[in-house]
């Protein structure tokens, strides 16, 4: 939510994925995100996975309440998706990827 000015023209997708330890839902979310990105954004993406059970301040900074949470920081608009991303159609629609 902080960095919106920087290099949006490259259309490179940047994601922040917040997980908590090795929970089942967290694992599924990572897996689902990878699948989607590999299929639709081949090479043109960046995923940062943040484990808030270790980095607790990050949860406060990014206003995280639910786990897993995916934040798309680039390109704008920023989108926030809760859940393990198992509903692929919905995720694609929200992220505006086709």
């Amino acid at each position: 939510m902080d960095d919106s000015s920087d290099s949006s023209s490259t259309a490179k997708h940047k994601f922040l994925l917040f997980v908590s330890g090795m929970s089942v839902k967290s694992g599924r979310a990572i897996e689902n995100l990878r699948l989607i990105c590999d299929k639709y954004l081949t090479g043109n993406y960046e995923i940062e996975i943040i484990d808030i059970s270790r980095d607790k301040e990050q949860a406060v900074i990014h206003q995280i309440i639910a786990i897993p949470t995916l934040i798309k920081t680039h390109p704008i608009p920023e989108r926030i998706i809760l859940g393990d991303l198992s509903d692929k159609e919905k995720v694609l629609r929200i992220l505006n990827i086709s």
């Binding site: 689902n32 786990i67 509903d87 929200i94």
Partner: peptide, 18 residues
């Protein structure tokens, strides 16, 4: 906020616990 799939409120728990 959009929702896609299952989630829990661990974020809240962790923040509160922290």
């Amino acid at each position: 906020i959009e929702e896609a799939g299952e989630y829990d409120l661990d974020g809240l728990f962790i923040r509160l616990g922290h």
